[in-house]
Amino acid sequence: MNIFVLLKQTFDTEERIVISNGEISDDGVKYVMNPYDEYAVEEALLQRDQHGGTITVVSVGPDRTAEALRTALAMGADEAVLIQSDGLEADEYTVSRLLAAYLGQQSYDLILGGNFSVDSGGGQVAVRLAQLLGIPHTSSITKMTISGPQATVERDAEGDTETLEVSLPAVFTAQQGLNEPRYPSLPGIMKAKKKPFHQMTAAELGVSDTDAAAKTKRVSLSLPPKRQAGRILQGDYAQQAAELVHLLRTEAKLI
């Protein structure tokens, strides 16, 4: 089975956001593999263990993205592909076009990605990719079983659980609970250094700048207003409970 995993590198979720000169500062920031993509990589490994095949992890991003791809190789993926985004004004349209151009030249059975990225969080790219490739998709899956040319998956639909049968090839995005992503092992990290790592540009994929030009652009950035610590209530618990309800009625006027 030819498995492809879509990866994005993001800020660690423990990072605070600082804006300087109208940009989000990445000074001293720790980058990680997007947490939802870890589930996708793990699922690829589990499926490969069962059904055989190879796993290629693919990312569109700047040079530093190589680190997240190497993490996936250290977890056990076989090959990595970095499509360079340096100098590109990229939005979700752009990224999905580049991925479709690359995957259009490959033979694939299963494409996995994260449900969304914890940075820009639109959740568009994997779904767009499925449309561009003309294959079905199911987003936000929490369970996957593959048998022959068909996958049976469970999907989290706002708390409800749907069971679907999907014919392969198809795209799936991983929701929390799908599996327990492994940590890269030391031998895994050593082996990752020798695994194939391909780099390519949009032009090499036959995508011109105008083809993939972003359809949206950012005009400004801001931080949310800082919240102030409010008041700590006093008295015994019953008094505090009564006061809280009273304050919600009179001060906040919400009850």
């Binding site: 989000i24 914890v118 949206t216 005009v219 950035l221």
Partner: peptide, 21 residues
Amino acid sequence: VLYTRPLYAGKAFEQKQFTGG
């Protein structure tokens, strides 16, 4: 039309607009 949306789940916000289409 300028659209405000969260980044990093609301640690920051961006305003975006469409470039066409």
